[in-house]
Write a protein that binds this DNA or RNA. Structure first.
Lengths: 203, 203
DNA sequence: GTCTATATTGTGATAGAC
DNA sequence: GTCTATCACAATATAGAC
């Protein structure tokens, strides 16, 4: 029953992922995961030895799934405007499908920044090269840019923040209307690129 | 010894605040707070009955201390450019002094959005009036603005994100150089307003 | 592989001495 | 007001039956 084994192990990982993303490391117990997966508590330890190891596997996967995308777009040979559109559209779409991931990642990294060393290596990210490539792309197309690092943080922030602060913004600005907020997020696939491009166009 | 009583009670609140902000609700135990305050665990229950009540008091205070500032600047009679400068400078300064507050607030609200109803009422915030006032201010000064809600989310996001995602950005963009990142945050008091104003200026 | 049973430690919370 | 002692329960984790 090698088939069954893989199936169960993978199933645990998928369920645990959802529970951890929803509740964070501290807010999640092995019991919660076992219940959600419809299995026994001790089976979790059989497969993953400890809560920390299980979490580590999941967090690495989540981190590796979302963060490195950042680089791909900016290494391509699109124009800078195309890159900005491609990046924001892609990230906003991904987070609409995984709305709890931004706050989850930031929350856990805030408690364990030291894990980043390994995570960045695993994910094969090289931020310096990306910064360099942004810098060149902007110069080439006559965009006004004092510092590519501010540009990068601005762009990511404009994409991520509405998800991380969703309860606050949805309640305060949209009277807690789910659909209206979802629509607002979709609008941002145009709003954000336009905002950025306007901001960096040479006056 | 009324004096002593107040002093201890306030002291607990201050210490507990730091511990909660650092570790979140789930990551904090009553024992941790007691140790940090140099008192006994049961004294916490004497003053505040339960962990949840203690947390509630602290969260309300933190929320009320930071979120409503938002409105003050925008109800003033400054020009829109002055308002943008005032808002970003003020928020970035406040978060430099309280760097863990953004992620703390977003994290806890993400787990308990329903608390917002009471919190917003307590804090005396009226978001609709603020949105309206932004909208008018921008129209009056001939700024290009399709939707004041995107403007608001953009501005707040540009201020808050670098704090919420600090571990990630500091490590990836600044090789984990604390001072360089602190300097980067200070730069944003100019960068962010310039970025915003450029973006919304009529072309 | 999957379960039951159990060990151990930590948790929030209360009672009661001083 | 502040402590010690203690409760009831939940946590992670392991041993061992099947």
């Amino acid at each position: 029953m090698t088939d069954k084994k893989i199936s169960t192990e993978e199933n645990i990982l998928e369920i645990a992922r959802e529970v951890f993303i929803q509740n964070g490391y501290d807010g999640t117990s092995m019991q919660m995961i076992a219940d959600a997966a419809g299995i026994n508590k001790s089976l979790l330890h059989y497969y993953y030895r400890s809560k920390e190891k299980l979490f580590g596997r999941i967090f690495s996967k989540v981190f590796g799934q979302f963060v490195p995308q950042l680089g791909v777009v900016f290494m391509s040979d699109m124009s800078i405007e195309e890159k900005i559109y491609a990046f924001t559209e892609q990230y906003i779409d991904v987070f609409i499908e995984n709305p709890l991931v931004p706050i989850f990642v930031m929350q856990e990294l805030s408690k364990n920044p030291q894990h980043l060393v390994g995570l960045i290596r695993e994910a094969g990210i090289n931020p310096e090269i990306m910064i360099e490539s942004i810098s060149k792309a902007l110069e080439k197309e006559d965009m006004q840019l004092k510092d590519p690092r501010h540009f990068l943080v601005n762009m990511i922030g404009l994409c991520v923040f509405p998800f991380a602060a969703r309860p606050l913004t949805q309640r305060m600005i949209f009277n807690n209307d789910e659909d209206a907020y979802h629509n607002f997020l979709l609008e941002r696939k145009k709003e954000v690129p336009e905002f950025i491009i306007n901001a960096i166009k040479k006056g």
